[in-house]
Design a protein around this nucleic acid. Structure first.
Lengths: 216, 216
DNA sequence: GTTTGTGAAGGATTTCACAGCA
DNA sequence: TGCTGTGAAATCCTTCACAAAC
């Protein structure tokens, strides 16, 4: 599937989306192994750790290049770095949080984004009484300012923490302003154009699909 | 696929897991239509709302019975109720939260669980200095009390909000105590026996799989 | 006329199994 | 010998298309 190194001529078209979604899992597992001092790892070991088959890992990686050495396995640091670069995790991504209620504040305060290169650089709320308040050392802005701020601060990601009743309109607004990646905490299935990606964070849905298996 | 009504002899074995995971989506959409006053809906309309094909909806439902009327569609209330019952959402589910730091407190305070029938009935933390404190009108308990409390309060779901470094051991403990459904907020891919279900809530993973498509 | 429920077809993803390399 | 990378096979999931029901 193409020869070894050379900085990614990846056919994004042709990589199945499921594969892309597993890549971050590999990155995370590799980081753990790296900080445990492991230098080389086989698809077998990685698979055991992630509860998946070695074949799947090898096949997934094969979409992007050849990273291993026969008879040996993968260099942990190297593979992690290559995958980070493929995913675009070697640069910083700026995000805006829309909806500064209880949930929005928790998201702004969440310490897990920054170390992974995701930085919240603006906060917005439709409620004019909130506008101007300080949250996480940022001024809450009016939605009127969304378009200009998104461009000025190079914001590529929208994080939606408004109530379900307003989520679709906020998402429409983000789309209109050119945002192509949305993390949606509202419990709705939003409608977006095909070039916009949405990922839902929805603990209730997760619980509801587990109870099926719990019934007696 | 079996005749009409009769209270579910569902072959859980045979229903694909993806289908089970979509059911809560249907329930949610149906509830919305119901409260908008819609009484009957076709797979076409439901599909438009959820951005999926009508055929997929009909096929999914066909695993569980026959709920529609040809030429007409589905009775919104009836279908919602049937699906709730299939998923086990017609009863209450008790949950315990393990890890009462910033995130754990936010989860305990989250108002989205209770209305859907999920009730947090116990809180635990490994830090003995926290034990005894009140959080969400519950006493934070020691992990020593986990086994007994799980049985006394009929807890079927564990919600893990401890730091990544302790998540696997806490999950092991939950498994040992008989928990079969775990909602995991820690950024790890836990290893569990095959009869235990885990769902991860992990905004960072979601973001990391979107950046792949953002890299111009 | 409309829309369901479903076998059959088609497409996508996973797993197999092995040649080839270290 | 040990393990990768990968076509081919197997499995899983989605879509088609139409008979039956209203």
């Amino acid at each position: 599937m193409r020869s070894d190194n050379s900085p990614e001529p990846i056919d994004a078209e042709i990589v199945p989306e499921v594969v892309v979604q597993r890549l971050p899992l590999y990155v995370r597992a590799l980081s753990q192994f790296a900080s445990a001092g492991v230098e080389v790892i086989s698809s077998e070991q990685l698979g055991a750790h992630l509860q998946m088959t070695p074949a799947q890992i090898r096949k997934d990686l094969s979409y992007f290049g050849r990273f291993g050495k026969q008879g040996r396995g993968y260099d942990v640091d190297n593979l992690a770095e290559r995958l980070r670069s493929i995913l675009g995790l070697d640069s910083q991504w700026n995000a805006a949080v829309i909806g500064i209620g209880r949930l929005g504040r928790a998201v702004v305060a969440y310490p897990g984004f920054e170390p992974e290169g995701f930085r919240i650089v603006a906060t917005f709320d439709a409620d004019e009484r909130l506008v101007g308040h300080e949250v996480g050392s940022m001024r809450v802005q009016s939605l009127n300012e969304l378009a200009s701020t998104v461009h000025e601060r190079n914001i590529k990601i929208g994080i939606v923490t408004v109530p379900a009743s307003h989520a679709q309109e906020v998402i429409n607004l983000l789309v209109r302003v050119g945002i192509k990646a949305i993390l949606n905490y509202a419990p709705i299935a939003p409608v977006v154009p095909p070039d916009v990606r949405v990922r839902g964070v929805d603990p209730v849905l997760s619980l509801q699909s587990m109870t099926f298996y719990l019934k007696t």
